[in-house]
């Protein structure tokens, strides 16, 4: 940064805006006082205890985890075959098909959420879990298609042709050659999908019901009614979980690589 005063200043300002608010949340979580103020009054872990004993947060956490796991699995089950077809098959209108699967990234999430509310919950009388599962899976499909596609595009199709030429059945070729090539891509896509579903607000807000509400939506509700450090404690616990996921991502596939696939 030396000899670059303007760029350096802008970069520092950028980091401050990205990181400092997160530090404020963490520091207020450890307060001993009753209000969400800064500086915190005294030091204590009491709000972590209260957050973990607060039933609505815990049942919402369970709901969020269920939804994230099931929708990630469904998105991969539907998306990986699509990637295979796009990357390895000779299908007409390839870029059109790929565009269709990436389009949920462009259409505003509130539009998708309201659409599914009208068609699935009102029109077909389905539960909010079904509507959320469809909505989240739609939202995750671009990751499943794009991120796994990026890892497959790097692999040489000749390897698979060689396996076939040596007498392996198509199924055998898939399981012992193609799938291992896909594994890092599937892992990255799965990780991104899980996090995206877990953190989603717009869909989860529009498609919630009394029986099924995700954690971010429950926290938004809570902060409208009472403004106390319990919300900072719960946020800090989510931060800790996210740090663990980030470390796993960095140690396995590498951070920049995971995000490299989606950004194009």
């Amino acid at each position: 940064m030396r000899g670059r005063p303007v760029l350096g200043t802008l970069a520092v300002l950028g980091y401050i805006i990205m990181i400092v608010p997160i530090l404020f949340v963490v520091s207020t979580a450890f307060t001993a006082g009753d209000a969400l103020t800064f500086p915190p009054q005294g030091l204590s872990l009491r709000w972590f205890g209260e957050a973990l004993a607060y039933q609505p947060f815990i049942s919402a956490l369970v709901s969020s985890l269920q939804l994230a796991v099931v929708s990630t699995a469904l998105a991969l089950l539907l998306g990986v075959p699509v990637t295979l077809a796009i990357q390895r098959g000779k299908i007409p209108g390839k870029s059109l098909v790929e565009g269709l699967f990436l389009s949920p990234l462009v259409v505003p999430e509130l539009v998708v959420g309201l659409a599914l509310y009208q068609q699935i919950m009102i029109g077909l009388h389905q539960t909010s879990f079904v509507a959320l599962l469809v909505g989240h899976t739609v939202l995750l499909l671009p990751y499943a298609v794009r991120v796994t596609g990026a890892s497959l595009a790097l692999a040489d199709p000749a390897v698979e042709e060689a396996a076939r030429g040596l007498g392996a059945s198509p199924l055998r070729t898939f399981f012992s050659v193609t799938l291992p090539l896909l594994r890092p891509g599937i892992f990255s896509a799965g990780l991104l999908s899980f996090v995206t579903s877990f953190n989603n607000v717009p869909l989860s807000l529009l498609l919630q019901s009394r029986q099924f509400r995700t954690l971010p939506v429950t926290m938004l509700d809570y902060v409208q009614q009472s403004y106390d450090p319990m919300i900072a404690a719960m946020s800090t616990l989510i931060l800790a979980g996210t740090v663990v996921i980030a470390i796993v991502a960095e140690k396995t596939v590498g951070f920049a690589k995971i995000f490299g696939g989606i950004n194009k």
Partner: peptide, 11 residues
């Protein structure tokens, strides 16, 4: 990018 928008906005 991995961290919840809700958590980031609370700050």
């Amino acid at each position: 990018l991995l961290l919840s928008n809700v958590v980031r906005t609370f700050g």
